[in-house]
Design a protein around this nucleic acid. Structure first.
Length: 608
DNA sequence: CAGTCTTTTCCTGCTT
DNA sequence: TAAGCAGGAAAAGACT
């Protein structure tokens, strides 16, 4: 595919597409006094003689711009359309016994993600756009800037000493300086030495080096649980994929947009909030609504039962200081602040009483669950373990076990199956069941269910097969939705002339400011780091200059905002995770094929 | 209003 | 020895 950008190295070509600073001056009728550059070769001490006008030669052209564009924003291959999961039922059928359906379908649906969409880092562009919009806003509203014409702003604070200070502190360290001087001596020095960007002079030129403060993809709290030995423990986790949260897709309204100008505001764009603030005990407000259970049948709200309260407590990071899972997979949890937990329970529970709830009483309530198998004993202090939830299931243990044996996924919810997988008994427990001293009829419902399941041949494999069957379609649809979104964002970016324009401006400015021949040409690789750069003295972001140029000459770039949602959302999707999930699903389906072949009594296998 | 379920309260004995 | 745990007994709130 041909790029809209010139591939030639010639400055002439460069001038035709890149708005260089001198051109910018010329076209805006600015004099040499408006914008100057300091050119200081080597460690030469600065003086007035070093202040020269911007060289007439434009900055070197990033000759590989087009290549970078291709590298970062590769188009979607035309011959590989997105998968359509509309016939996922057929696919499931092919996996679970319907030999008419070709097995190839699975490969078709679970192709490597690289075949659907190709991009490396949408988030870089996301950050850039954020910075540009942010500075535009700041330009318009900030008291720190003074509007000198319709679209021109200068810092209100005149810092006449900035030149000397920069000369002293920067040049001793061997940095070259470029200072843009706006009107009467008001100066913006760029690039700064803060944030790790240094412009080395002389000798080997390593080019700009940046802090290695790579943003990590916050990704809505996803914790990748990479099972190395998943074939051993058969635990097919539900695909944990980023949920498309609409609330995070909204671009802030112009009138309420309030970006901070500190570099940390970008680093924490998508924080995972892990509160470390312990709740004060006693009189703190407890929002009961937070704890209410909403009935699936009639939508009525009610206070939680004790075991429901415990689940919610443990699932809420806010209360991690009160109680936390020691081993989430096994359902083992510990109270860290017992009286705090009791206090919470006091305010949340349905039945009222004048007396104070204590941990002792709370624990007695928990111990009542032992007999039903909802919670089991552990050896640890203040430590309990969840058992199998049968409270909300009306069918008998024998019915449930029967459904598992016959792969009846309609009679088994994914919650129950996951739960059963979670609490598959260990060797000791299996031995205990084998040497049962009491009649099986006298077991608790939970124990009776485990007892019945243990009698089923290949019960672990059956449970995992049913689980895979139950979540496969949902997983496919979720993956598909996310891939589609990334794909759309890639396509948009690749074809967006505004994005190209923006990137060109940024690269032009940066290369111009760093235009001595020995300096490495800045490329798209460097763009994401540019967002945080500020002048050391006046703390003016580089992006401010970019914004100003956009404001003055390319205001149509701000139209990008209309499509910003798409890029912003897509940039939060981590393709690595999607790739991992697809790979997992493939492995699982292969494993299930093996299992299905060994289920000797594979009778009445129900096909969805 | 009775019956049921789920705690709540209090307690004794046992264990760590 | 104190603190925590186990579980019996009875009562009580909430719900059906």
């Amino acid at each position: 595919m041909s790029s809209i950008l010139p591939s030639s190295n010639s400055y002439d070509d460069f001038n035709t597409w890149s708005p260089s600073i001198p051109e910018y001056c010329l076209q805006n009728e600015l004099s040499d006094n408006d914008i100057l550059a300091i050119d200081l070769p080597g460690n030469q001490k600065p003086s007035q003689n070093n202040i020269v006008s911007i060289p007439s030669t434009p900055p070197p052209s990033p000759s590989n711009f087009a290549n970078y564009m291709d590298k970062y924003l590769r188009p979607v291959p035309q011959d590989c359309p997105l998968p359509d999961f509309s016939d996922v039922d057929k696919l499931v059928a092919s996996l679970f016994g319907d030999k008419e359906s070709p097995q190839d379908d699975l490969d078709k649906y679970l192709r490597p993600v690289s075949q659907y969409c190709q991009y490396d880092d949408v988030s870089n562009v996301d950050k850039l756009m954020t910075a540009v919009f942010r500075d535009k806003k700041r330009l318009q509203n900030s008291p720190d800037y003074h509007r000198i014409s319709q679209n021109r702003f200068i810092p209100t604070e005149v810092d006449m000493e900035v030149m000397q200070e920069i000369n002293q502190s920067q040049l001793e360290g061997g940095y070259a300086n470029r200072v843009l001087i706006y009107d009467q001596g008001q100066s913006i020095q760029c690039p700064p030495v803060t944030n790790g960007l240094r412009f080395h002079q002389g000798g080997m030129n390593p080019g700009p080096s940046f802090n290695n403060n790579q943003e990590f993809n916050a990704f809505m709290g996803y914790e990748p649980s990479y099972e190395q030995n998943f074939l051993d423990n058969y635990d097919f986790g539900t695909a944990q994929i980023a949920t498309l949260d609409d609330s995070n897709m909204q671009v802030q309204d112009e009138s309420t947009c309030d970006f901070e100008l500190t570099s940390s505001s970008l680093k924490t764009a998508n924080p995972i909030e892990i509160s470390q603030n312990p709740q004060q005990s006693g009189s703190q407000r407890i929002d009961r609504n937070e704890w209410f259970i909403v009935s699936k049948v009639d939508g009525k709200k009610r206070a939680p039962l004790l075991h429901e309260f415990l689940r919610r407590l443990l699932d809420n990071q806010k209360y991690s200081h009160v109680a936390q899972y020691v081993d989430r997979k096994k359902g083992i949890f510990t109270f860290y602040q017992r009286e705090e937990a009791a206090n919470l329970w006091q305010h949340v529970k349905a039945r009222n009483s004048d007396s104070k709830m204590t941990y002792d009483k709370l624990a007695r309530g928990i111990r009542y669950y032992y007999s039903g198998g909802i919670i089991r004993r552990t050896a640890g202090r203040f430590t309990f373990r969840f058992g199998i939830i049968l409270a909300s299931i009306k069918r008998s243990p024998i019915e449930i076990a029967d459904a598992i044996k016959n792969f009846n996924s309609k009679l088994n919810s994914i919650e129950l199956i996951q739960h059963l997988i979670q609490y598959i008994p260990n060797e000791t427990e299996i031995d205990a069941f084998n040497q049962l001293s009491i009649a099986k009829e006298k077991l608790s419902p939970a124990d009776r269910l485990v007892y019945e399941i243990l009698l089923i041949p290949y019960y672990k494999e059956r449970l995992n097969t049913i689980k895979f069957k139950l979540i496969f379609a949902d997983n496919c649809n979720l993956l598909n939705a996310q891939i589609r979104l990334v794909n759309e964002a890639c396509t948009f970016l690749y074809h967006s002339s505004h994005i190209k324009e923006l990137l060109e401006i940024i690269l032009s400015v940066l290369n111009h400011l760093n235009s001595t021949p020995t300096h490495r040409i800045l490329t798209l690789d460097d763009l994401s780091k540019v967002c945080d750069l500020k002048t050391p003295k006046t703390r003016i972001p580089i992006m401010n200059i970019i914004s100003q140029i956009c404001n003055d000459r390319h205001s149509d770039i701000f139209d990008l905002k209309q499509n910003y949602n798409l890029i912003s959302t897509a940039s939060k999707i981590d393709l690595t995770i999607i790739k991992y999930e697809i790979e997992q699903m493939k492995q699982q389906s292969e494993q299930i094929q093996i299992w299905l072949n060994k289920f000797d009594d594979r009778i009445d296998i129900e096909v969805i």
